Amino acid sequence: MLRRGDIIRVFAEEKNAGCGPVMLPAVSSPRGVRLGMSRDETARLLGASMLETPSRLYYGQTLKIPMDPESREHYSRLQPNFTDDDAWFYEERTIIVRLDKGRVSSFTLCRVTST
Rank of each mutant, 00 (worst) to 15 (best):
M1I: 10
R3L: 09
R3Y: 06
R4V: 13
R4G: 01
G5L: 03
G5W: 02
D6W: 02
I7L: 14
I8D: 08
V10Y: 13
A12M: 11
A12Q: 13
A12R: 13
E14H: 09
N16G: 04
N16Y: 13
N16A: 12
C19R: 15
C19Y: 14
P21F: 11
P21K: 11
M23L: 15
P25C: 08
P25W: 11
V27H: 07
V27M: 11
S28D: 07
S28A: 08
S28V: 01
S28E: 14
S29I: 04
S29G: 02
S29L: 02
P30N: 08
R31E: 14
G32Q: 03
G32S: 02
G32E: 05
V33E: 01
G36S: 06
A43N: 06
R44M: 06
R44V: 09
L46N: 02
G47Y: 07
G47C: 07
A48Y: 04
S49A: 15
E52S: 11
T53N: 00
R56L: 07
R56K: 14
Y59T: 06
G60N: 07
G60R: 09
Q61D: 11
I65T: 12
D68M: 09
D68H: 08
P69E: 13
P69H: 08
E70M: 10
R72G: 03
E73H: 02
E73R: 08
H74P: 00
S76K: 12
R77C: 09
Q79C: 10
Q79S: 09
P80G: 09
F82K: 03
T83W: 04
Y90T: 10
E91L: 06
E91W: 03
E92Y: 12
R93P: 00
T94N: 08
I95T: 10
I95R: 01
I95W: 01
V97A: 05
R98N: 15
L99H: 04
D100N: 12
K101M: 10
K101A: 15
G102P: 01
S106F: 11
T108D: 14
T108E: 13
T108S: 11
L109I: 09
C110G: 15
C110W: 06
C110S: 15
R111S: 14
T113D: 01
T113M: 12
T115R: 15
